[in-house]
């Protein structure tokens, strides 16, 4: 998690570096420390540092970290030549290193030679089965090749050990949603809500999944999670407002009006939607009105 102060510090450094004010190394260190993905900027400024022998030698042993960082960024930007050069330098300095081996495997992956990369990754994993980065790369690679089921397999294997990694759970949830395996996705979103109960996006996604599965019980639950999203976002999330309306109308359809479900919140949500639309896009108010009418909320 990136804290507020770190974020502002990063922003400030980024502006400074972008406008040629120096501090490139500090910026790169911060990016590395916070594990952010700013590949284009890292590549640009890191390469400038590396190409300047005086600045490079001033870094001392951190020079090699910079090489690694730039190599990874270059792979991300498909600047394979740059990456190759960096990796070559690292290879010379650290022959037989596994960390460099990882970079080489990533280079193979970036080139698109999947089978070779796969082989390289597996041999690296044989040495150290607990390497999180490599396990994640394998998932990413399976996904890139279109082998979604393989990606699920690898992810599940990864989560069996690192089961507190919520980013992996989110990835798995998104994959399941893309495959329309909603029950599994719901489980993953539950797991995400457990690990970060105050993040409204998880509540929203969970509600979406439940609504899609359907059924009275799920719809009622989904409605509650849309409500919690509204509470957590201060009522500013349009999707959640729509979700409440949709859930209410779907529940009314299922129960044919027999169930005297509390409709107050959906009328409130509809009113909030109307207010938002009037404020930000008045020309679409009529569209909203007709949509709400079909949901019998107006």
């Amino acid at each position: 998690m990136v804290s507020k102060t770190e974020e502002s510090q990063l922003q400030q450094l980024e502006n400074q570096v972008e406008n040629g004010g120096g501090g490139a190394w500090e910026y790169l260190s911060l990016v590395r420390k916070l594990k952010l993905r700013r590949s284009d900027k890292v590549l640009k400024h890191g390469l400038a540092l590396l190409n300047d022998p005086k600045k490079r030698s001033a870094l001392g042993p951190d020079e090699w970290n910079l090489y690694e960082q730039v190599a990874t960024a270059a792979l991300d930007c498909q600047c394979l030549e740059v990456a190759k050069d960096c990796i070559k330098v690292l290879q010379k300095k650290f022959p037989g290193s596994k960390r460099v081996g990882r970079l080489e495997a990533m280079l193979l992956e970036a080139k698109g030679s999947w089978d070779e990369a796969e082989k390289a990754y597996s041999s690296l994993l044989e040495d150290n089965a607990l390497d999180q980065v490599i396990s994640m790369r394998r998932v990413a690679m399976a996904k890139a090749r279109g082998d979604i089921l393989g990606a699920i397999d690898w992810l599940n294997k990864y989560l069996e050990i690192f089961m507190a990694d919520h980013d992996a759970w989110r990835e798995l949830a998104e994959i399941y949603v893309s495959l329309q395996m909603y029950k599994q996705a719901a489980f993953c979103y539950e797991e995400l809500i457990l690990s970060q109960p105050m993040i409204p996006l998880h509540h929203l996604a969970y509600a979406d999944v439940l609504y899609t599965i359907g059924g009275l019980e799920n719809l009622q639950t989904a409605k509650k999670y849309y409500a919690s999203t509204i509470e957590l976002t201060g009522g500013k999330n349009t999707r959640a407002l729509y979700g409440i309306c949709l859930c209410t109308s779907a529940i009314a359809q299922l129960t044919k009006g027999k169930n005297n479900e509390d409709k107050e919140i959906s009328t409130l949500a509809a009113a909030a939607l109307e207010k938002d639309y009037k404020q930000s896009s008045p020309d679409k108010v009529s569209l909203l009105a007709s949509t709400l009418k079909t949901m019998k909320l107006q």
Binding site: T221, K224, G235, A272
Partner: peptide, 17 residues
């Protein structure tokens, strides 16, 4: 706790409106 959230969400929306 979600049923409670529903009520609170209602309050939030009312306030916004």
């Amino acid at each position: 706790v979600l049923p409670k959230f529903e009520q609170r969400a209602g309050d939030v929306l009312r306030k916004r409106l």
